[in-house]
Nucleic acid binder design. Structure first.
Lengths: 292, 292
DNA sequence: CATCGAACATGCGAAAACGCATGTATGAAG
DNA sequence: CTTCATACATGCGTTTTCGCATGTTCGATG
């Protein structure tokens, strides 16, 4: 009636992943070893933790109980690792940043290049992700997020207000300017029901040609002449092939936040990266608030 | 910047024990392996956790932080093990009981013999200890304690009220009865400042011959004619060589409690042992409340 | 009905972790 | 000053753990 902490972690991974293979990936082990650890834990506890079904392992109530305890243990582990990282005063070792891919591509890349050049000892990992990574679980040390309401438990500051505009290839834009009543093709983001109200008001006859869930693809579609779209103005700076639709004003867009976990506030590496990000955004405010 | 859970446990044992050897004993490992694990953890974290001093390892602040987190993880582990044990419905496997040595020797032994005979599959471990074992850490599943105020977080019931009396070899007892004013030798428990007030009142001229911190030793001293003593009456039943001092009434003594952890209430093994202990005490109340 | 992939069992050689024996340094005790 | 105990370092052979390759079962798919 005892259990090793590593085996508790294995049970947690197994309950989370649902299969030996998935648990193995999470733990960085082969699924064979996961099976052996589960078996060893069952021996030590004197009772089965998983039912061997033809379709795979099925966790018992006991396994779920162990997994819940292990999840709380994992939170302790992550918290102490954060505190240790936060205490590190040397500009050396791993550091991770997550940001929207488009922001990296069109704005951040030169700055990051400079940062890594000036801090060769820092091993910077950039995770280009639109999803929200979990900073508490250390999926990243620092996050750049475009959001109106950034997460509560994190500390952060607003780096830049943003404006969005309406853009299209010059032919479409000129036609729309000449006759606002004429049909106007539109490329819509999948998350939105309809084109923005301001556009619908100026151009009553908007036809949605396609809905896409990926901004680069939407830009490609617009560049191919598929229609007009709404996008934050900073993207217009790197896409001269798209011009603003006349008569349509800029609209507020979600601002850009820089977020990190409290425990990491003392980290020198983090401070260094913040220290270059903040002036970079301050000195280039116009990229986010006005047209090229 | 990562750490295995087993290594966190090793850091905890190291901080607790203060030396590689002590940590090795706690973990059931050789101290060599403890040293290797510490070294591995320091490599993985990229910083030292212990200073190597001539007189041994000295934990850094980082090591203490990890140890604090590991202690909370240990609490989770122990809690889940308790819950698993509490769920066990079979009369089989390990079961541990702690009780004061004197209670076992003079009252409990026959009952425990019968219990193990009737439950051969249960591996009963009896920890004879006067100290208070930690039931939360599963140092024992069930505890018999002589106390006026048993611990809060545990569930328990009072098994017996107790009386104490004053005893000595017959010669001393008779002499004291004939002339209460005469000098009376006394054997005193180290924890007490002076003989009980009731005894001092009846016998003004009490001389403390020795103070001892161990009841069996005190009884041996009394049997050797060193003096009178106070003890719970149940001990008088198994020591006919000591007789009560006349003119002195019985006095209340701390009752006997049966305690266990909430999480273990559902355990069949525990219920079985409780089920024999309770009637055993009920049917033998007189052993604790009246003279032989 | 045949095929394919997902999920797990099993056996074997490689890698990692471990225990033991030996050696060194320090501090306490005679 | 010598002796002894404590605490740790290091090297070596053994045990345990691991990854990979192979085989089996089940269910989905065409």
């Amino acid at each position: 009636m005892k259990i090793s902490w590593d085996d508790m972690q294995t049970v947690l991974a197994m309950v989370r992943g649902g299969s030996l293979a998935a648990a193995g990936v999470e733990l960085g082990l082969s699924y064979t070893s996961v099976a052996r650890r589960i078996h060893r834990a069952e021996q030590a506890l004197g009772r089965p933790l998983f039912e061997r079904r033809p379709e795979g392992y099925q966790a018992t109530e006991e396994a779920h109980d162990i997994a819940r305890a292990a999840a709380r243990m994992e939170a302790e582990e992550q918290a102490v690792l954060r505190r240790l990282s936060g205490r590190a005063q040397d500009l050396q070792g791993p550091l991770s940043l997550t940001a929207p891919p488009l922001l990296i591509q069109s704005f951040l890349a030169p700055l990051l290049a400079e940062f890594t050049a000036q801090n060769p000892q820092v091993e910077l990992t950039v995770r280009a992700a639109n999803g929200v990574l979990d900073l508490a679980r250390r999926e990243a040390d620092l996050a750049l997020r475009i959001s109106r309401h950034p997460q509560d438990t994190l500390v952060g500051r607003k780096l830049a207000e943003q404006q969005s505009g309406f853009f299209a290839v010059p032919e479409i834009a000129e036609r729309a300017a000449l006759d606002p009543q004429a049909p106007l093709d539109w490329v819509l983001y999948s998350g939105h029901e309809a084109p923005p109200a301001a556009a619908r008001k100026s151009h009553p006859d908007i036809r949605v040609r396609a809905r896409l869930d990926d901004m680069p693809s939407m830009i490609a579609a617009a560049l191919a002449g598929m229609g007009a779209l709404r996008m934050p103005v900073f993207l217009a700076h790197s896409h001269p092939g798209l011009v603003p639709l006349p008569h349509l004003p800029l609209q507020p867009y979600a601002p850009i936040w820089l977020l990190s976990h409290r425990d990491l506030l003392g980290s020198a590496k983090l401070a260094a990266l913040k220290g270059v990000l903040e002036p970079w955004f301050r000195d280039n405010k116009h990229m986010f608030s006005s047209l090229p």
